[in-house]
Amino acid sequence: MESPTQKFQQNRAAAEGAEMSFIDHLEALRWHIIRAAIAVVVFATTAFLAKDFLFHDLILGPSRADFWTYRMFCKLGQALNNADLCMDKVGFIIQNREMSGQLTMHISTSFIVGLVLGFPYLFWEVWRFVKPGLYPHERANSRGAVFFVSLLFAFGLLFGYYIAAPLSINFLASYTVDPTIENQIDLQSYLSTLTTMSLSCAFVFELPMIVFFLAKAGLITHEIMRMYRKHAIVVILIVAAVITPPDVSSQIIVTLPILALYELSIHIARVVRRKNVERLNQQLADNQGVVEG
């Protein structure tokens, strides 16, 4: 009767013998890329056709005083008896200065929206390509990766769009050095600020998943993260200062969720470490049983 170790070695050898060639890997990767590209094109085309919603409601929403974020701040100001949190109008005008500017902006914005909406499917295709190369226990430990990566991306994107971007746009576009100077913001500049803020927050919110995979690979532990917590706080403050306007309130609003994500990542690294130790102990116990048998 074959021992568990012998069965494992035979299965490992069979798997290595059935490995795909380099050309087969390239062919598989090509089809993953094609399917992902088709998904992006479909979402981008849908966004391009929904021009009124895309620009009037979505893109230009933070440029109007009736935007959801401004209304919530106004309600907060009323509750705190602080009229400064309410705004009746925005202090800038968005304009286009190039002949083909609006058409170009329409196409590029549709492509960006296609990438954003297709991100879960893009990551799923990447995961389908990587997954066959993982060991069974690695696949089991990474179960739900596509869901959580997509969920964190969506949370970060919503936070950037509804919190970080409106604060930055309102501060930068209404800031004046002299009352006689009127702020007339170029459409390209406005869109660049909006997308940069939103996408930056979306990717920053992936910190827990990044720590999860690094902890799985043994490249980081919760002890290291606790040891360098003060350094991490400095880095987080710098990141918040880069992606927000030079306004203390905006930086605090962006810094707090990133700090919360860092603390959550420490907990994730601790759980991963404990499970890794339990798995190694179980393997040692199984091997010891095989030797004694």
Rank of each mutant, 00 (worst) to 15 (best):
Y175G: 00
L152T: 01
W127L: 05
F171A: 06
L85W: 15
G114E: 08
Y135M: 11
M105Y: 08
F123V: 05
F119H: 05
V126C: 13
P132W: 14
R143K: 14
A47M: 05
Y161P: 01
A50R: 01
P62G: 06
L167E: 10
V90L: 13
D66I: 04
I107E: 07
F148P: 00
A79V: 05
G133E: 08
D57C: 00
Q78W: 01
S142L: 10
K51Y: 13
R139D: 03
F159M: 04
G91I: 07
F123D: 07
A50N: 10
L54C: 09
P62R: 08
I163T: 11
A140D: 12
F123T: 03
V130R: 04
C86Q: 12
G160Q: 07
S108F: 13
F67Q: 04
F155R: 01
P132K: 11
I107G: 01
N81V: 10
G118C: 04
V113T: 10
I163E: 06
L167G: 06
M72A: 14
Y121Q: 06
E125Y: 07
P166N: 10
L115W: 07
I107K: 01
F129H: 05
G118F: 08
V177Y: 11
S168F: 14
T176A: 13
A65K: 03
N170C: 00
K51F: 09
P179W: 13
R139H: 03
L167W: 07
D88R: 07
F119T: 12
G144H: 03
S63E: 08
S110A: 15
F48H: 08
I107N: 03
W124I: 00
R71V: 01
L54D: 04
G114Y: 11
P179N: 12
F43Q: 07
I94V: 14
I163V: 15
F73L: 15
I112K: 15
V146D: 05
M87H: 14
F129D: 10
A145M: 13
S150R: 00
L85S: 06
P132F: 13
D84C: 00
W127Y: 14
